[in-house]
Design a protein around this nucleic acid. Structure first.
Length: 975
RNA sequence: GCCGGGUUGAUGGAAUGGGCAGACAUGAUCGACUCAAAAUCGAUUGCCCGAGAGGGCGUGCGGGUUCGAAUCCCGCACCCGGCACCA
C-alpha cells in the first residue's frame, strides 16, 4: 500500500493529498492567526473597539454551547456543531456581516475534581492541560474563532462576575405587581417607611430583630438559603443534582446508593419567573420540540384554590368522636385543583405525608366505627400516621414509582367539610400526593380522576359521578372499570341549596363555581406551575465559591463588590469526605470547610460596624452557573469595570427588528440541555435585564440542536465490544480476529471501542475533508452513523476541484480566461442561488451536493473558465476554508478569501431556457416534452395531446379531463 | 401511561404551499488506462418480468381524500427522545 501510494505521489507531485492538505491547512491557520483574521471589532474605541467604521456593517453573533475540557480527547462526533457554526459564521462574513464567533470552556465540574482525587493533581492543572490539548485539536479544524474573546469559567477574572451576578440575584426580590426583579434595598425601604406591611404572620418591621428581618428578607430574595431534601451520596461524599442520579436511585458515577437528606442549601427563586419564562418562548426561533419541553417543564395549570374547613380533635376526644359531633372549624386545608367543576364529587381529601397540617388535625382516637382498611390496623390515628410517614420516607423513588398503581395511605381520623355540599369528607395521608406540587393537598374526586379512583377502590371510599359520561357507561361509578376524565361532557348531581351546576359544560361550570368560591371567600381561580426552585449549591471543591459570609448570629451577608473575586483557596485534600456507601445517616463535609484559615475571617463589610468575625459559606456553585451568562462575557471579555459594557451589549445582543427580546443570532448545541442550561440561562438573562444590566431579555434568539454522530459497535459472542477499527467485513458478515461479531448502532466513545479521532482523519485526508464529510452526512439536526468508508467521497470532491484549477504535474493553473458556455453559466448561477439559500437555512448537506454537481459538470469539460473556477472556490470557502484560501491565492488574489463577497446569482441564468414537461395519462408518465418556461396552458395542452406516446397510451379513449400546470405538468384523464 | 419526533435503494441521504421518487455521496459490477495494482476517467446500479423494445410493482403496514399522495386525513406496527402519581 505505502509503496504504491508513494509511486502515485511521485507521478503527480501536485496532487491534493493528505500531506498537501496538511501543509495548506497549517500554513493558512498560522496566517489567519497572525493576521487576526477572525477578530471581530466592538463598537467604540475601548478594549476590542474597532471604531465607527468597523461596526457600520450588519452584525451576527454565532455561538456554540461551550465544551467541558475533557481529558479523554475529542472524537469526530464532538466538533459537529462547531463546524456547522463555523460554516455559518464564514458565510455571514462573506455576506458583509461583522461576525462574532468564539469559543470558551465550561471548566468547573466533577470529572476534574474526581481526577484530582485519584491522582493528587490540582484540578486547575489537569483542566488547563486539557484545554491546551483541546484547543490544539480544534485549531487544526480551521475554526475561525476570535481568540481574544475566549475564556474559561475557572478564570478568576470570569468567575468574579459569576459571583457578582449571584450577589445581584441575592440582593433582589421579585415584585409580583410590577412583574420584575427589584433591588432588595427598595423592599427594605418599603417596610421601613410602612408603605408595605410585613406578612400577616409577622410582627411589624420595626419590632423585628436583625435575625427576624434577615429571615423575612430571605423569603423575598431571588437567591436564598433553605432546608431542602437533596440527593445525598455518602459513597461519593457529595450531594448530587437530580440529573446525576440514575433511574435506579444510584449515583451515575460509581453506582453508589443515593439518599434523600434535608440540608440547608442555596436556591434560586426561578419560580417567580415561571410566567415570563413561558410567555417569552413564543418570540423565540427555537425548535418546537425544545419549546414544548420547556413548556412542560414549567407546567402551567389553570385551576382554583379551595379551602376545606377541618375540625381538629377536641381535647380528650376518644372513641365516640365521630364525624357527626365535632367542634368548630379552626383549621382549613387548602387544595389546588384543575377540576373545580367536580367539587360536588369530592368525597375525601388527601394530604402529602410531609404536610405540616397533618400533626394538627390528627385526633387522639379513631372516630367510631372506622373501617379497618382505613386504620391500617393501628390503635390510634397518631400511630397510624407516624407509621405511614416512616414507611413513605424510607421508600426510594424507584419503589414509589413501581408501586404507583397500588395506592397506599392511611386515614388521619379527621374530617373536613366540602364547602359546596356541606358534607363531611374523611382526610387521608397518602404518598400519591406530592408535597412539592400545588399545596401538597388535594380534594379527591374518585369518579373523575384515575389516581383517586384507584385509591377509593382500595380504601372502599364512596364515589359520586358529577360529570355525565359521554361513552354510555352510565352514572354509577361502582360499575366502572376506570374514572371518567373527559372535559367534553356536562355536569350532573351537582345541585345544592347554595349553588347548582347541573347541565353546564365543564368550562362553564368551572367559571360559575370559581366565581362562587371567590364570592364566598373560600377559594379563588389561580394558576399553578410545576416548576420548582433551582437548587444552587454543591458540596464540592471545584466550583465557584459563594461570595457570602455568616456573622456570629448566623445571618448571611454579601461580600462587597471590591472583595471579588473570592478565589478558591488551596486545600490539602479536595476530595469530599466519603462514608460507607449505604450509610444514609451521614452528612456531607465540604472540602472548603477544612481550610479553617480561609473559612474564619475578620472583615469589614462596610456595614458601618467595623471589622468583625465571619464564617465563609463553604458550598460551591453548581457547574451550570458559569454557563448561565457566558454569551455576555464573549462581548467584552476583559472589562474589569462591568460584566459587559452596555453599548457593546446593545450592539451585539440588543433588541432589533424581528427580535424584540434580543439575543444571540444563532446558538447551536445538543438537545440534552433543553430544560436545564437553557432554562437557567434564560432566567439569569431576565434578572439582569430587570436590574438594568443588559438590554436583551432573552439570551438566545435562534436555537438549533445538532444531532449525534453515532458509530457501529461490534460485539463478540460474549457481548463484549471489540475494536471497531480491527473488524473486517466479508460477505455482509463481520469478523474480529477470525471470530464472527455482531454489529449495532450506538454512541461513539472509548468504552465501546468505536471512537474515531479527528487526528486520524487529518492524517488520512485533512481537515477540509473532515469538515465537508461531517456537513455532508445529512441534515444537521438528525443523528447519523459515521461511515469510515464514505469519508473518501468528500476527499475526492476536493481532489477534483483542485485538479480543475491546478495541474497535478506541474502545479500551474490550468484554467482559461474564456467565457463559460451557456449550460455552464446556468449551472453556475443555479448553484449559487441554491447554495446561498441552503447555507442560510443550515442545509449544509444539500449545499455540498449542489457544489459537487457543479464541480462534476466542469470536470467533464477540458478546461475551466476562470469565472467558474473562482465561483466554485467562493462557494466552497465557508465549508472548506483552507483549500479555498489556497486556490484563491493561486488564482492570483492577494487578499484573504474569508472576506470576499459570496457570489450572487444572476436571475437571468437561474431560470432554464427550456423545462421538461411531464405528460401523464391517468397519473402515469407517458411523455416528456422540452418546452419554453413561458408556454401557455393552451399551447402546452395541445402539444401534449399530440405527442405520439400519449396518443398511443390513450388508445383512442375519450378524454374526460385535462389538468395543465404549465410549464411542468399535464395530466390527461380518459373517461 | 402521557407528550414529541421518525420509518424512502445494499448504505448515508435528496425531493413536502400534493405534480418526473431515489439528487449528491458511499458501496458494488463492467470497461478504458496499466506488465500489474492503486489512482483517475467512462458506463451500469430500487425490485420484478422481458433477448430487446417495453411492461408491471415500489417511499413501514392497512384504509381514505384527489386527475395525481413519500407529502394531506383515519387506523395500526416498530424505532428514537422527553416526562413520569403534577391533582
Amino acid at each position: 500500500m505505502s509503496e504504491t501510494t508513494t509511486a502515485a505521489e511521485t507521478a503527480a507531485p501536485h496532487r491534493y493529498t493528505a500531506a498537501l492538505a496538511a501543509d495548506i491547512e497549517t500554513r493558512w491557520q498560522d496566517f489567519w492567526e497572525k493576521q487576526g483574521t477572525y477578530e471581530a471589532p466592538n463598537p467604540g474605541d475601548g478594549d476590542l473597539g474597532g471604531g465607527p467604521e468597523a461596526v457600520a456593517k450588519p452584525k451576527k453573533f454565532i455561538m456554540d454551547m461551550f465544551p467541558y475540557p475533557s481529558g479523554s480527547g475529542l472524537h469526530v462526533g464532538h466538533p459537529l456543531g462547531y463546524i456547522a457554526t463555523d460554516v455559518v459564521a464564514r458565510f455571514h462574513r462573506m455576506t458583509g456581516h461583522n461576525v462574532l464567533h468564539t469559543l470558551g470552556f465550561d471548566a468547573f465540574g466533577l470529572p476534574a475534581e474526581q481526577y484530582a482525587v485519584q491522582t493528587g493533581t490540582h484540578p486547575r492543572v489537569s483542566t488547563e492541560a486539557n484545554m491546551v490539548a483541546m484547543k490544539a485539536q480544534l485549531r487544526r479544524l480551521g475554526l475561525g474563532h476570535d481568540q481574544r474573546r475566549s475564556f474559561a469559567t475557572i478564570d478568576p477574572d470570569y468567575y468574579r462576575w459569576t459571583q457578582w451576578i449571584f450577589l445581584q440575584i441575592f440582593n433582589s426580590w421579585y415584585d409580583a405587581e410590577a412583574q420584575r426583579a427589584r433591588p432588595i434595598a427598595e423592599l427594605v425601604e418599603e417596610f421601613e417607611s410602612g408603605r408595605r406591611h410585613t406578612p400577616q404572620d409577622r410582627a411589624p418591621w420595626r419590632e423585628l430583630d436583625a435575625a427576624e428581618r434577615a429571615d423575612l428578607l430571605g423569603e423575598y430574595r431571588l437567591a436564598y438559603a433553605s432546608e431542602a431534601p437533596v440527593n445525598w451520596c455518602p459513597g461519593l461524599g457529595t450531594v448530587l443534582a437530580n440529573e446525576e442520579v440514575t433511574a435506579e436511585g444510584r449515583s451515575e458515577r460509581g453506582n453508589f446508593p443515593v439518599f434523600k437528606a434535608k440540608l440547608r442549601q442555596w436556591n434560586m427563586r426561578i419560580t417567580a419567573y415561571a410566567e415570563r419564562l413561558l410567555d417569552d418562548l413564543d418570540g423565540l426561533d427555537w425548535p418546537e420540540a425544545i419549546k414544548l419541553q420547556q413548556r412542560n417543564w414549567i407546567g402551567r395549570s389553570e385551576g382554583a384554590r379551595i379551602d376545606f374547613p377541618v375540625h381538629t380533635a377536641a381535647p380528650g376526644a376518644g372513641a365516640g368522636t365521630g364525624a357527626g359531633e365535632r367542634g368548630p372549624a379552626d383549621e382549613s386545608i387548602t387544595v389546588f385543583t384543575t377540576r373545580q367543576d367536580t367539587l360536588f364529587g369530592a368525597t375525601y381529601m388527601v394530604l402529602a405525608p410531609e404536610h405540616e397540617l397533618v400533626d394538627r388535625i390528627v385526633p387522639s382516637a379513631w372516630p367510631e366505627a372506622t373501617h379497618e382498611v382505613w386504620t391500617g390496623g393501628h390503635g390510634t390515628p397518631a400511630e397510624a400516621v407516624a407509621a405511614y410517614r416512616a414507611q413513605a420516607a424510607a421508600k426510594s423513588d424507584v419503589e414509589r414509582q413501581a408501586e404507583a398503581k397500588d395506592k397506599s395511605g392511611v386515614f388521619t381520623g379527621a374530617y373536613a367539610t366540602n364547602p359546596v355540599s356541606g358534607e363531611p369528607v374523611p382526610v387521608f395521608v397518602a404518598d400519591y400526593v406530592l408535597m412539592g406540587y400545588g399545596t401538597g393537598a388535594i380534594m379527591a374526586v374518585p369518579a373523575h380522576d384515575h389516581r383517586d379512583f384507584d385509591f377509593a377502590r382500595a380504601f372502599e371510599l364512596p364515589m359520586r359521578c358529577v360529570v355525565e359520561p359521554s361513552d354510555g357507561r352510565g352514572t354509577d361509578p361502582a360499575a366502572w372499570d376506570d374514572a371518567f376524565v373527559s372535559y367534553d361532557a356536562s355536569i350532573v348531581n351537582s345541585a345544592g341549596p347554595r349553588i347548582a351546576l347541573d347541565g353546564l359544560d365543564v368550562e362553564r361550570a368551572k367559571e360559575k363555581i370559581t366565581a362562587w368560591l371567590e364570592a364566598q371567600g373560600v377559594g379563588a381561580g389561580t394558576v399553578n406551575y410545576r416548576l420548582r426552585d433551582w437548587l444552587f449549591s454543591r458540596q464540592r471543591y471545584w466550583g465557584e465559591p459563594f461570595p457570602i459570609v455568616y456573622d456570629e448570629e448566623g445571618i448571611a451577608h454579601a461580600l462587597p463588590e471590591d472583595m471579588l473575586p473570592l478565589e478558591l483557596p488551596e486545600v490539602d485534600d479536595y476530595s469530599p469526605r466519603t462514608f460507607a456507601a449505604d450509610d444514609g445517616d451521614t452528612s456531607p463535609e465540604t472540602p472548603l470547610s477544612r481550610n479553617e484559615e480561609w473559612v474564619n475571617v475578620t472583615l469589614d463589610l462596610g456595614l458601618g460596624d467595623g471589622p468583625r468575625k465571619y464564617r465563609r459559606e463553604t458550598n460551591t456553585m453548581p457547574n451550570w452557573a458559569g454557563s448561565c451568562w457566558y454569551e455576555l462575557r464573549y462581548l467584552d471579555p476583559r472589562n474589569d469595570r462591568v460584566l459587559v459594557d452596555p453599548t457593546v451589549e446593545r450592539y451585539w445582543m440588543g433588541p432589533r427588528e424581528g427580535m424584540p427580546s434580543g439575543g444571540v443570532d444563532l446558538y447551536v448545541g445538543g438537545s440534552e440541555h433543553a430544560v436545564l442550561h437553557l432554562l437557567y440561562a434564560r432566567f439569569w438573562s431576565k434578572v439582569l435585564f430587570d436590574l438594568g444590566h443588559v438590554s436583551s431579555v432573552e439570551p438566545f434568539h435562534k436555537l438549533f440542536n445538532q444531532g449525534m454522530i453515532q458509530a457501529y459497535v461490534y460485539r463478540d459472542s460474549r457481548g463484549i465490544a471489540v475494536s471497531a477499527a480491527e473488524v473486517e467485513e466479508r460477505d455482509g458478515a463481520y469478523y474480529h480476529q477470525g471470530e464472527k461479531v455482531s454489529r449495532l448502532l450506538g454512541k461513539m466513545g472509548k468504552s465501546l471501542k468505536n471512537a474515531v479521532t479527528p487526528d486520524e482523519i487529518f492524517a488520512e485526508y485533512g481537515a477540509d475533508t473532515l469538515r465537508l464529510y461531517e456537513m455532508a452526512m445529512g441534515p444537521l439536526d438528525v443523528s447519523r452513523p459515521w461511515d469510515p468508508r464514505a469519508v473518501v467521497g468528500q476527499y475526492r470532491l476536493l481532489q477534483r476541484l483542485w485538479r480543475n484549477v491546478v495541474d497535478e504535474a506541474d502545479g500551474e493553473l490550468r484554467i482559461t480566461d474564456g467565457e463559460p458556455d451557456e449550460a455552464t453559466l446556468r449551472a453556475l448561477h443555479k448553484t449559487i442561488d441554491g447554495v446561498r439559500q441552503d447555507l442560510a437555512g443550515l442545509r449544509f448537506n444539500t449545499a455540498i451536493a449542489k457544489v459537487t454537481e457543479l464541480n462534476n459538470h466542469v470536470t467533464k469539460q477540458h478546461q475551466v473558465p476562470r469565472s467558474v473556477a473562482e465561483g466554485l472556490v467562493l462557494l466552497i470557502a465557508p465549508l472548506a476554508p483552507h483549500v479555498a484560501e489556497e486556490l484563491w491565492h493561486k488564482l492570483g488574489h492577494e487578499t484573504s478569501v474569508v472576506y470576499e463577497d459570496f457570489p450572487v446569482a444572476d436571475p437571468a441564468y437561474v431560470v432554464d431556457e427550456t423545462v421538461t414537461c411531464v405528460v401523464q395519462v391517468k397519473g402515469k408518465v407517458r411523455a416528456r416534452l422540452e418546452v419554453a418556461p413561458s408556454i401557455t396552458e393552451a399551447e402546452l395542452e395541445a402539444t401534449a395531446l399530440s405527442a405520439p406516446s400519449v396518443v398511443a397510451a390513450l388508445g383512442g379513449a375519450e378524454i374526460r379531463k385535462v389538468i395543465v400546470r404549465a410549464p411542468k405538468l399535464v395530466n390527461i384523464v380518459p373517461a
